[in-house]
Amino acid sequence: MSKGLVEVENLKKYYPVTAGLLSRHVADVKAVDGVSFYIMEGETLGLVGESGCGKSSLGRTLLRLEEPTAGRVLYKGSDITRWDKRQLKELRKEAQMIFQDPQSSLDPRMTIGDSIGEALLIHSIGSEKDRLERVEELLKRVGLEPEHAMRYPHELSGGQKQRVGIARALAVTPKLIVADEPVSALDVSVQAQILNLIMDLQRELELAYLFIAHDLAVIGQVSDRIAVMYLGQIIELADRTELFSHPLHPYTEALLSAIPLPDPHQKRERILLQGEVPSPVNPPPGCRFHTRCPRVMKLCRQELPTLKLLEGNHLVSCHLYG
């Protein structure tokens, strides 16, 4: 039985570390190390974590922009890790990506119209006239003017460029969009505009999002469910309200308590984590978080906890909840 639009099973992505003249393989960066989850049609799964936790690698591997080391990615029940080039091209019509930095994801020598229309051209969708009309429609849809089609990226502001990035992803009428930190390069007043656009589009086009961000406030704004990632693994996954009201994993608790709230009256008990994220080349044995965990036990140093399903559809990977 299929659980959703996308199902990820025990996905791993290792990057080899090489050394010496012959590029001897000495170790692996375990960017994504055994991750499983699903995304339903029309829902937003928020993926949050600090830099280096593997959230971007996960997003890219999910779309096979990176080849997975192990595991399966089922799209509508079919394992895309086995698909060939021709099938992958078909996948690109249904699954798209929005990048963090709209500056570097647009070709500076192409007009905005050409950039948006490129996907249509590659997939041979419509006549030239149809494509121009579609580009115009997309520009309006993301809140730009048809005139912007003739402009070049350097003539646009950061927020406008991100709108173009979204229009490009929408050109092929996808069902799934992986959005990798789509608003973190933007100013707050513009960030709100783009977040609204992303939420509006979801309602109208019934899109499913994997929304990747390091900012829990942003994630909380857009997500139905939220997955928290630490050092290549998902350590907690729950509905947004459940996660914010009853965080279980000590890392999630610390992350939530560290969000700077725009309210000087709020004096919270902050859980200050000691130390830093260990290297994903040589992750600590046992629970990956035990080196920083304020509630570490003997078992945590020895045995890696697995994701366990608790009440309220709440998944957590921690020995405290054994």
Binding site: V188, L195, D215, G220, Q221, D224
Partner: peptide, 10 residues
């Protein structure tokens, strides 16, 4: 007003 707010919901 344009700040995302965790307690406000989607």
């Amino acid at each position: 007003n344009c700040l995302p707010n965790i307690s406000a919901g989607r």
